[in-house]
Write a protein that binds this DNA or RNA. Structure first.
Length: 220
DNA sequence: GACCAGGCACATC
DNA sequence: GATGTGCATGGT
């Protein structure tokens, strides 16, 4: 049985706090969550920098930008036409459902918010949970490619484990703590970048160190 | 020049 | 329900 708390402590000791989405507005976090889908964060930052330079990191401003123009501004984030459409879908949702008020969203319960977010075309489980955790401070564990791969590689879950199962694993074995979920997810992405890419770099991996002697990390 | 990255929706079987 | 495919840029 995986001791997630120990995994967390190991990662934090080895890698330190990741300080994810520091000093950014909830709205900016939402935009980032949409743009980062299946994309390197470096490319997303270029796109967000463009939006910031144009003064477009607010709902009202961004809603007024024509589709073609928005697509060009976020080109660096990849899938730019698709993401322009999906971003507009989210913006219209925020406007229609909450009159653009983050405060109004904060007053809604987490389950309802998650259902509503998932109803937006372009928002899937990870994007919804990223928004809930990183923009709205809800104790919702975010499961992404690295969460799945890192746990599976070290034999803690099966490769066929689905999103909900992995999320429950975290939420059931950890205390409900926004800061903990925030940091843990960021650490999993970081350790994934460093040691658990498609071609594993297991040497010096803090998680491989936790495994029994002679344990072989399984390939994908 | 191939390979990869903090997904998601949709088509087809 | 499972499996396959399109979407696209920029870094390694």
């Amino acid at each position: 049985m995986i001791r997630l708390r120990e995994v967390y402590e190991s990662l934090l000791t080895a890698l330190g706090p990741q300080d994810w989405w520091p000093g950014e507005s909830p709205f900016e976090v939402m935009v980032g969550a949409m743009l980062v889908q299946n994309t390197a964060w470096k490319n997303v930052r270029l796109a967000i920098d463009n939006l910031r330079e144009e003064g477009l990191l607010s709902l009202d401003a961004l809603r007024r930008v024509p589709h073609e123009e928005l697509a060009e501004l976020i080109r660096s984030a990849g899938y730019f036409r698709l993401k322009a459409t999906r971003l507009h879908n989210l913006l219209e949702f925020l406007h229609d459902r909450y009159d653009g008020s983050i405060q109004a969203m904060r007053e809604r319960d987490t389950d309802t918010l998650r259902r509503e977010l998932l109803s937006v075309n372009g928002v899937g489980p990870e994007t919804a949970d990223s928004i809930l955790l990183y923009a709205l401070d809800r104790p919702t564990f975010v499961v992404d490619t690295y969460t799945h791969r890192v746990l599976a590689r070290h034999g803690w879950i099966g490769y066929n484990a689905d999103y909900h199962t992995i999320q429950e694993l975290f939420e059931n074995s950890l205390e409900e703590d926004v800061s903990l979920y925030n940091e843990f997810h960021a650490l999993l992405v970081r350790v994934g970048h460093l040691y658990c890419r498609k071609t594993p770099q297991c040497e010096d991996c803090p998680l491989c160190d936790m495994l029994p002697e002679g344990h072989i990390v399984t390939p994908d």
